[in-house]
């Protein structure tokens, strides 16, 4: 059985005031094996964030099922879901989602504190996580004092600190320069090598080329997918690039 199984997933947003409906996902099916590094690509508004949110059970689907690690998250209680998310998933949000009232260090430590880790070990953990992402100097600063890219790295550190089984990252390199994003991706590849599963949304072909598989999403469905196989990063880059071109031109028909 796969680590993640998504079948016939459908999501319709209804705005509360006007009652307008937006179909974000029409029919999504895919599976992810344990230890895979999957990138998701697609145009803006194609439903990528929606998909990640559903996988992490942050939102309810309209139809379809998601089985994660053998469990149907929608069938268990809210408290258990929160615990599962905390213990097994690391989420890097598109909007970083750092808390203004915490220092960078405390933001990074938040999941550990929620897990009830001993206070004495915490500082060390924070320093270790920050060192991997090159933000050690920023630990005592508040979010309003640091740049967007630095916030993004802090958010990544927060997602990685619990060593989660699966990392869900929504454009983790969106605010980074090419050097920092290379470093971040190296980090992802290395933890992926250690067995952690990664699901990453990205607009960057270069970032996607580091993954082992790329899913293309369009108008709320999985349109196409590419396996890296034994191809080199450069070869895979070319392949992805071609597919994207085909996607856009094909879309216009």
């Amino acid at each position: 059985m796969s680590y993640l199984e998504v079948t016939n997933l459908k999501k319709i947003y209804t705005t509360r005031l006007s009652g307008n409906k937006t179909q974000a996902l029409t029919n999504v099916c895919f599976t992810v094996e344990q230890g895979e590094f999957v990138a998701i690509m697609g145009e803006s508004g194609s439903g990528k964030t929606t998909l990640l949110n559903l996988v992490a059970a942050l939102d309810k689907s309209t139809e379809g099922s998601i089985i994660l690690d053998g469990m149907d998250l929608s069938s268990i209680g809210e408290a258990q879901r929160a615990t599962f998310r905390r213990d097994n998933l690391g989420f890097v949000f598109q909007e970083f989602n750092l808390l203004d009232t915490f220092t960078v260090e405390d933001n990074i430590l938040l999941p550990l504190v929620l897990q009830g880790k001993k206070a004495s070990d915490l500082h060390e953990e924070a320093v270790k996580a920050a060192a991997c992402l090159g933000i050690t100097d920023l630990l005592s600063k508040y979010p309003y004092e640091i740049s967007g890219g630095q916030k993004q790295r802090a958010a990544v550190a927060r997602a990685l600190i619990t060593h989660p089984k699966m990392i869900l990252a929504d454009e983790p390199t969106g605010a980074l320069d090419s050097k920092s994003s290379d470093e971040l991706l190296n980090q992802f590849v290395s933890i992926n090598g250690g067995g952690q599963t990664i699901l990453m949304v990205t607009h960057s072909v270069k970032a996607a080329s580091r993954a082992s598989r790329v899913l293309f999403i369009k108008d709320g469905t999985i349109f196409h997918q590419l396996y890296k196989g034994d191809a080199s990063d450069t070869a895979f880059y070319q392949k992805i690039s071609d597919t994207l071109t085909m996607l856009t031109t094909g879309g216009e028909k």
Binding site: E78, A79, A82, T83, F91, T101, L110, L114
Partner: peptide, 13 residues
């Protein structure tokens, strides 16, 4: 703030 906390894994309780 609470939205974030929920996303990070704080339960309603």
């Amino acid at each position: 703030k609470y939205q974030i906390l929920r996303n990070v894994g704080m339960s309603r309780k």
